[in-house]
Design a binder for these strands. Structure first.
Lengths: 162, 162
DNA sequence: GCAGAATAGTTGCGTTTGTCCACTAAAAGT
DNA sequence: ACTTTTAGTGGACAAACGCAACTATTCTGC
């Protein structure tokens, strides 16, 4: 007579995910969590940690001198108040500077500092490496495909197209 | 002589995303934000709102009677304390119940309540609909492909394979 | 040139969320 | 028996985000 094994009624490996099994959003959400953790680890101590929007901001300011907070806000899908706080932080860390836009009294222009430019260089390396590490065992072709699809979805969602 | 137009130095539609342009993680993160918001809207008032892990928990408990908190925790990539609080909440809302596992004094078994089962039905509809709505303009074939790829990445990340 | 609408940014507030750590109890390993 | 591992709990803490209200500036239409 077979002995009834102990242990959870549903061992993790065997649990079906119900309808979520076929739901893109579930995977996106989950992978996002893992991705964020992994990235945070790699950014250890780089005063750009918890890099939800800091990274994008840093890179954008670096490659688009004078870019405005509200533009970045839209790209990273945050509201202006959240963006403002982000900018405050980064100024505090001396990564960027803020000045009034010469031609529009309401707006600001952001610029990178030397320290910020330095960090941007490092971050670029880290970000690309993490992305390729993380998806390393996905065949090259699929990665490209994935990238294309997601880019399109993103652009539409962020209101960049049409 | 062309008049210098006013407006941001870099209009949103034209901003390049620097290296992030080709970084899967960036898109995943961004799409995740949009996806979460959209889902929250659709769950308006369904006391499973802010559905980071609630939805998965609800569906899993519904389809796997007696499943253990720690198993769910691993699937949704949370630590046990976060999971515990989640369970508390859901019990509060009378969606699930908690009882000691008969064969293991440390463990618990979760079961769905009628109210929870009801909600699960609704949530299943909503979750699948949102996922297909959101990715509606991605060709069917790509969706399948995307799903396959992401599922594999997820399973590996959650430690379900190997 | 003026009134009203729209836009950029700031601030306060509240809420949520999650992580870290320490602790208890039970089970498994040796 | 002794030690290690696993399941779950509870507290403290921090960070992040969104909403709403408010100011200042610019734009639109008349």
């Amino acid at each position: 007579m077979p002995v009834k094994k102990k242990g959870p009624p549903y061992p993790v490996e065997t649990v079906g995910l119900d309808v979520l099994e076929d739901t893109l959003s579930f995977y996106i959400r989950s992978i996002n969590i893992a991705l964020s953790r992994d990235l945070d680890d790699r950014l250890e101590g780089l005063d750009v940690a918890r890099g939800t929007g800091k990274i994008t901001t840093l890179l954008l300011v670096d490659s688009h001198p004078g870019i405005r907070p509200s533009v970045i806000a839209q790209l990273i899908m945050r509201d202006r108040s959240a963006m403002g706080r982000l900018v405050d932080q980064m100024i505090e860390h001396e990564l960027i500077t803020r000045q009034a836009a010469p031609d529009d009294g309401r707006a600001q222009e952001l610029h990178i500092t030397p320290k910020g430019a330095d960090l941007a260089r490092k971050v670029r390396k880290i970000a690309t490496k993490q992305s390729s590490d993380f998806f390393a065992d996905v065949p090259e072709k699929d990665q490209k495909r994935l990238l294309d699809i997601l880019r399109r979805v993103y652009r539409r969602t962020a209101g960049l197209d049409q």
